[in-house]
Design a protein around this nucleic acid. Structure first.
Lengths: 214, 214
DNA sequence: TATAGTTGTAGAACATCGTTCTATCACATT
DNA sequence: AATGTGATAGAACGATGTTCTACAACTATA
């Protein structure tokens, strides 16, 4: 058991706290962003499997040890990728000023798929752990939660406007998320058994809103 | 590039055709099922990551080479696991004699989740490729298709009975599949943000049927 | 300015993985 | 009884995540 090592402690050096004693010597943070950028580049260019410590280090022009010094291992680096992913997803879900509640939800739904298809590797890393990581940091989950809350907001808006039936907004948002995620995940994996995914997805959103409306 | 070897040819020996010359010497098929059974045992007991060629061979009391002799590699063995998985899923979806179309669909939906939760490792291997395989054999896709067709049948039944709105049954079945898969996948991965998954899933099915009915 | 300490680099090393190869051995058909 | 097919054991290769050690470079202090 326990397969590949992964020691107990090894908590990442918590690079948020300034330690407040003296003008703490800022560790060359360039290496950090260089590594994350490189990892993202490798992920998009060569796919999830190509995201190896050695490959990312080479891409960043940095020694492999940097990954362990700054992120505590591969998982720490991957977590940064996931953070960027969920941030992008949240941005996609933010309302674009739609007044009509149905349009607002429909638009968010369309942009959800758009994000997933334009960032397939990210999406699979986020929901499929295509890049194998042991656990997902609570830090990441918090950002994921923010994406979800964006959706909950739209649901509340729809209920307040009388467009959606009154229910626990969290529950309804979860239903929406489950639905769009399922469709998008199957589409990315090529398991969709319909000829026109674009149209089918629109129909799915229509069906969804029909099932949820007051 | 090309990461881990994986030669070009290596097509599995097509153990279906009897070669029709003489009473073809049946290659001790025991090794075959022993390996699949062992792989399944390892998968369920130790999780997807533990399904390694060596571990499965040990579990089966067989030499690692057996995997290559009989399945052409790890992927071939994994394909067998997937076949068993999709067969189980199809069995779960077969109607239990429900007359009411809504009940029939609802029941199938409940059993879908039941199967997934009772066979988490299988399910993740099927839809998440938790066991990393390069491509999925068309043979596997055929069985997956059979599961889907089971669902399409229920949809046709519902439309014929006037319980569901008239649409392309394939499209509607795809909508249902996307929805339940999304919910179940998120639940298995612990990404559900609702307190009572059981109740939420029932509500989801209710919403789904509401959106689909005539 | 000179010294000390932190930080990154380079490279080897370990265990595990999928995979291939080379022998040796057991069995079944002829 | 002779022959050949298939299984076995074990080493080997390349790649992976990870750790460790030695060395170079930079920053902050004396």
């Amino acid at each position: 058991m326990s397969a590949t090592g992964r020691r107990g402690g090894a908590t990442r050096p918590a690079r948020t706290a300034p330690a407040r004693t003296k003008p703490v010597r800022t560790p060359s943070q360039d290496v950090e962003v260089a590594l994350i950028d490189a990892a993202e580049r490798v992920l998009v260019r060569d796919g999830p499997d190509a995201v190896t410590v050695r490959a990312v280090a080479v891409e960043a022009g940095v020694a492999p040890m940097g990954v362990y010094n700054r992120f505590g291992g591969k998982d720490g680096l991957v977590d940064e990728l996931l953070k960027r992913g969920f941030t992008g997803l949240r941005d996609a879900l933010i309302a674009r000023g739609e007044i009509d509640p149905g349009e607002r939800l429909f638009g968010a739904g369309l942009r959800y798929r758009e994000f997933a298809l334009s960032n397939r590797a990210h999406y699979l890393a986020m929901f499929d752990d295509a890049i194998h990581q042991d656990v997902t940091a609570p830090e990441v989950m918090l950002i994921a939660r923010a994406s979800f809350d964006e959706l909950v907001g739209h649901v509340r808006y729809g209920m307040a406007a009388g467009a959606l039936a009154e229910h626990d907004p969290q529950e309804v948002a979860q239903q929406i998320w489950s639905t769009v995620h399922g469709a998008v995940q199957l589409e990315i994996k090529g398991m969709l058994l319909v000829p026109d995914p674009d149209r089918s997805y629109r129909d799915l959103l229509g069906m969804l809103l029909r099932g949820l409306r007051a």
